[in-house]
């Protein structure tokens, strides 16, 4: 039943329509997720204060993920943060951040619809990522984030626990990402390092 002010056109569709694959690690596309890019000098006191006041958590340390009141803050580079929150909240968080940043040199953009999000679940999650990204997975742990490549496409991932990870890539390459994760996680393709 459609509610007033809603049309079918506004139904949110994720890139892969919530595709799932079950192998020796479960691969699934996450439901619509709010993603916000904040660019600005993270060492700047104005940026740090604005993030703290809106998010309830400060700027994360290098390559770290911080839990905040409205989601999570991911360190992307010395001048970039990614904020992950509920899809419906994203526009409000962007407005709050822009207001809090004021004249501070910065940029805040809602990029939710430009990205695709995938979840890996299973004790061999580290192995699936190690197959696809040039990362020493022994250096990764829960709460660390890396931007890297998965085979031929750029992506960012962070460990949500010791046996699960979340991966973000551009929406235009979502199918490529899903296919390579599914193929790597096929039963019978275990390497057995983890």
């Amino acid at each position: 039943m459609m509610q007033k002010g809603q049309s079918k056109m506004s139904n949110i569709q994720t890139a892969m329509n919530g595709a799932r694959a079950t192998g020796y690690v479960d691969v699934s596309e996450a439901p619509a997720t709010g993603m916000i890019t904040l660019r600005g000098d993270l060492a700047d006191a104005g940026v740090q204060k604005a993030v703290k006041s809106v998010m309830g958590a400060g700027v994360p340390a290098t390559l770290a993920v911080t839990d905040a009141d409205v989601g999570q803050i991911l360190w992307m580079s010395p001048d970039e943060l990614m904020i992950v929150c509920a899809y419906d909240q994203a526009d409000q968080v962007v407005a709050d951040l822009i207001a809090a940043l004021g004249e501070t040199h910065s940029m805040v953009v809602n990029v939710s619809d430009a990205r695709a999000v995938f979840d890996l679940n299973g004790s061999a999650t580290f192995e699936i990522i190690a197959k696809l990204a040039p990362i020493d997975m022994k250096s990764m742990q829960a709460g660390t984030v890396r931007r890297t490549r998965f085979a031929q496409i750029p992506a960012a991932f962070w460990m949500t626990s010791n046996d699960s990870a979340r991966i973000i890539c551009f929406r235009s390459v979502a199918e490529y990402m899903f296919n390579q994760l599914r193929n790597s996680a096929q039963a019978g393709f275990e390497v057995g390092d983890w």
Binding site: T62, L63, P134, I135, D136, S139, T148, R149
Partner: peptide
């Protein structure tokens, strides 16, 4: 030097 991460050549 910015990330402190050890990067493999193909990431660069």
């Amino acid at each position: 030097p910015y990330c402190g991460a050890k990067c493999e050549e193909t990431e660069l």
